[in-house]
Design a protein around this nucleic acid. Sequence first.
DNA 1: CAAAATCTTAATGATTCCTTAACTATTTTC
DNA 2: GAAAATAGTTAAGGAATCATTAAGATTTTG
Lengths: 220, 220
Amino acid sequence: MKKILIVEDDISIHQLLEELLQNEGYETYHAYSGTEALLLLEKEAYDLILLDLMLPALCGEEIIEKVQDTPIIVLSAKSSLEDKVHCLLSGANDYLTKPFQGKELLARIAVQLRSNQASFLDHTLKYKELELLNDQHTLMISNEKVSLTKTEYAILKQLLLHPTQVISKNQLLDFISEDTEDCSEYSLRVHISNLRKKIKDYTSTPYIESIWGIGFKMKE
Amino acid sequence: MKKILIVEDDISIHQLLEELLQNEGYETYHAYSGTEALLLLEKEAYDLILLDLMLPALCGEEIIEKVQDTPIIVLSAKSSLEDKVHCLLSGANDYLTKPFQGKELLARIAVQLRSNQASFLDHTLKYKELELLNDQHTLMISNEKVSLTKTEYAILKQLLLHPTQVISKNQLLDFISEDTEDCSEYSLRVHISNLRKKIKDYTSTPYIESIWGIGFKMKE
DNA sequence: CAAAATCTTAATGATTCCTTAACTATTTTC
DNA sequence: GAAAATAGTTAAGGAATCATTAAGATTTTG
């Protein structure tokens, strides 16, 4: 889930933003002053910052200059050309004048998150030594590349998506053979066996656990 | 020097934009209709597109969907929320309502060029010995010129844009045959085969790897 | 309008992967 | 502790996908 830091001192606008973003499925974090924002930014990385310009203690412009790798959307009551241009040139990615429409803000947020998407995190499922690279269709075990077949990949992906849950045999069968339903349990067993064999070549931990009579699960 | 494509049918606005950008040191290119824009985009790579929405022949929205890797700033007289949101969500990077202020446009252009700077759009895509010259539509292998057909070029470009990722067969088919959807997998296979053959004449590395059941990927 | 280049289709052979089946091992039930 | 049920391994044949070639169809070029 994407993390968005809201930097805004006006309580009512702050709450409005919080609600808007949370309804859209974002995780919100909150700063009510410039100094508070900087403290949070030192501790944690965010995917996006929504920044009010007129802040107590430390003005928004200073934050723009300190932040390097996180996209910033400025929300400001200042509608003057100089303010806009200055913010954009000194590092902000977008500038919306208050009052703004919620849907437009959401769209502009989507733009920023989209272009920053290359972040590896979205495309990787990590579990202990295992790393499943979704856009590369490969598995890495302790930084060594392990080649998987399409079905092996599909099975492991399901398991790693919910590593604490038991995935039933039927659930797995559904994902393996989207079209043909005559993919029997025989097959699944063989696939699991092959998967385990491949994993065993790279690590001593037996990662895939069988839950008797039900299905499979990642070993804790 | 950065190349900017202006897509706008209104002559007076077009000239205004041209002057504004040239004074700022950009190289400008010009299309007065949607179809003309697409033709230019096929031939050459640009750093940015300024796009009017209401165009003769082909509307701006369709261009947004076809363009993949070039940032787009929409300039439109349409100020409705739906238009904005739709454009931004379908691929535009920014949206300015006419009339706009020149300095703001310049600042927003700078934002787009800045964030795209580090990326591949240096007009050449390099990958080991391979060099794909986007503005000349040619491939260089160890400084020798290799002639590619239009489709071969399109395929290789997709692969080189994301050299670590697997590009699915459907993804490639979309780029090859923008109009006809009956371009079968047969074709794609032949094109890949021809591409490999050409590359093989100049280097011993087999650069294009097949990922079984999914697509293709550059060899690491 | 003809020649050249490119694209698509089709046929063939090669490769990879999946399923099946037979056999062994483990767990549960009585 | 033996029988029944479920799980695991292995190898072989068959199915699906891929690579290459050549020929006909289409587009581009002169």
